[in-house]
Design a protein around this nucleic acid. Structure first.
Lengths: 240, 240
DNA sequence: GATAGTTTTTAACATTAGTTAAGAATCAGT
DNA sequence: ACTGATTCTTAACTAATGTTAAAAACTATC
């Protein structure tokens, strides 16, 4: 359980190396852990959270609801990701966050956030950096939705999720865990679940991915990367 | 010319009221003005800019190039917007920025940025806030691309651009200036220019917008808003 | 190992948006 | 006012993705 925070530390370390002290501070400011069931909202659009949340395990999504009732996922959150650092400045959530699997989050409340921001400038920068990487990912998703066919788009998503999982320390060799079903993929990719299914079948048939329950193996990353027109620069984690 | 910076100050004022001193500091840190021709790159993906840029007049776009040569616009920048505050943390640009009209930018170089960040915490927060609003806009664009039909999508864009122009102080009553052609709209909306044209004709025919050269009049904003399924919360500027 | 719930798969058909290419209208510079 | 360049518009045709609904394959639980 002590290791829970390490996914987050791994991720921030892609930006800057954290001192033993800084890592200790990060672990120390977590006030409590909360467990959520799949489907629970961690945070609702319009709310004004006073604390920030770090995902220990499980996946979550940022999503918005359209008037026709359809829900659109604008980001996936994996272990180590922080949910809402931006509320230090934006006051109100402009989207909701939901647990997409059973999930545990660490809660760092407002006072502790302020403490980090004032006393640990290097940590503060790392937190802002992680927000900006989220922004960069959103921009790449825009290109993905606007300019790539369904097949290339989904292949691109798998490349991203594999690398993000890898940086967090969640992969074993060429395999990562993708605990979301095809409906959730379709809600993020702007496709129907039927079409998402057609596309994933083709990716499997062409051995670009090998799926075994929730484990996705990428037998040849560079082949998938080429097919997907994927360039990892936007993750700002030192990939070409 | 002294008033050039006011669009930016207007925008930041939607977040926090700036003191006379702070406004003076912002104006004072601008080292030089640069004029760009339409089509000029202000900043290239992969570069490591040391200064930040504020748009005085004219419009720009953030864009990425796909291997097939197609260019995708991921954000429009209007007078008062800052191009690249995030390079204080992200080092490399993950996208390019281009002047889409003749354009003047103010340049604030690195030293001055550091000075603001250290000595004017309120200003520093305002700059970070503007980045986070950009991120929020990117998320809304994701929903727009993934979940709305071409007609509603473009209507939504016009709502956004009208309100952003209004906050910057660029509108006169119900009219704003949209200096980009239909090709540029299509590059942002993930549509072909032919289809963009079809859609804009329908919006004009239904009097949701009235176009006169580069002036776009919105005779009944609430009607356009309803058609567009637009909710301005994501702009974080106090709209419902 | 039977049952209910969830997720994936299939199929037939409908619709939106893309493609290509050409013509009309508008604009900028002389 | 004339010319060339740009932008907008139209048309006929194509392709990608959406829609609906039902069946099959899993998964978890008793």
């Amino acid at each position: 359980m002590i290791l829970m925070f390490d996914y987050c530390i791994n991720r921030l370390s892609a930006y800057t190396s954290l001192s033993i002290e800084e890592k200790g501070v990060l672990r120390g400011v977590v006030d409590k852990k909360i467990k959520h069931c799949r489907g629970d909202n961690i945070m609702l659009a319009g709310s004004e959270p006073k604390s920030i949340h770090v995902i220990y395990n499980g996946w979550a999504s940022r999503y918005k609801v359209l008037p026709n009732g359809r829900e659109h996922i604008v980001a996936y959150l994996i272990p180590g990701d922080m949910c809402d650092v931006h509320v230090t400045l934006l006051k109100r959530m402009d989207h909701s966050i939901r647990a997409e699997t059973p999930l545990t989050v660490g809660v760092i409340d407002g006072g502790h956030v302020d403490y980090i921001m004032h006393c640990y400038p290097n940590l503060a920068k790392a937190l802002f950096w992680s927000m900006l990487v989220d922004e960069s990912i959103a921009r790449e998703w825009l290109v993905n939705l606007a300019g790539r066919s369904a097949e290339v788009r989904i292949a691109n998503l798998f490349c991203e999720l594999f690398l993000r999982s890898k940086v967090a320390g969640l992969t074993s060799s060429d395999t990562f865990v993708m605990p979301l079903n095809q409906v959730k993929i379709s809600e993020a990719m702007g496709l129907t679940s039927v079409h998402t299914n057609r596309v994933i079948q083709r990716l499997k048939r062409d051995k670009l991915i090998v799926v075994n329950k929730q484990n996705i193996q990428i037998p040849d990353f560079s082949r998938l990367q080429a097919f997907a027109d994927f360039n990892g620069d936007y993750l700002h984690m030192g990939f070409s």
